[in-house]
Design a protein around this nucleic acid. Structure first.
Length: 166
DNA sequence: GCCAACGTTGGC
DNA sequence: GCCAACGTTGGC
């Protein structure tokens, strides 16, 4: 079981949109970056945990929790001339762009990127690294647990500085 | 709207 | 294979 953070512009597909979709499941269309594609094609497994992130809005941040709903398959928008994600060089027999279905589980309070940055425990989070633009990034189990604590309000105090406590 | 950072393209 | 130019992402 692995964990991921997946960015979506709320104007395209918000956590509310995903929860309202049939089966609360949406195809993660439109990824046109090879690294992000490879994560979906090669690394993800059904049941993996997903932090549903809103980007390109104010403020950007984690907005919900989801899970990978199924195996990877060809992104149909690459073959659709009417789609803004259309890729004329793609043939159905050799699709270039791959997606997975994402099952939204619940909306959370919005945890802004600035709050994430304020926690030393998350300093190494891929999302927060300088220059990161990847729309899909891995999340470590430690980061996942810490964020769950932020979501449900049970985050323990920062460990740093407590080394001498009995 | 600005700008840093990154990915892609294409000439050579 | 190099690298300049360009386009995109995405926070601010």
């Amino acid at each position: 079981m692995r964990y991921w953070l997946m960015k979506s512009e709320p104007g395209e597909c918000s956590i509310d949109d995903a929860l309202a979709a049939p089966g609360a499941t949406v195809p993660w269309t439109g990824v046109r970056n090879y690294q992000a594609r490879n994560f979906m094609r090669d690394e993800m497994r059904p049941g993996d945990g997903v932090l549903f992130y809103h980007s390109g809005c104010t403020p950007p941040g984690i907005a919900g929790v989801a899970e990978i709903a199924g195996p990877p398959y060809a992104d149909p928008t690459q073959f659709d001339p009417a789609s803004k994600y259309h890729d004329p060089s793609c043939r159905p027999e050799s699709p270039r762009w791959i997606l997975v279905d994402v099952h939204a589980l619940r909306k959370t309070r919005l945890i802004p990127i600035g709050e994430l940055r304020s926690h030393p425990e998350l300093a190494q989070m891929r999302l927060l690294q300088r220059g990161n633009r990847l729309s899909i990034t891995p999340v470590t189990v430690e980061e996942w647990r810490f964020v769950q604590g932020l979501i449900d309000g049970t985050t323990p105090p920062t460990v740093a500085g407590n080394a001498c406590q009995p």
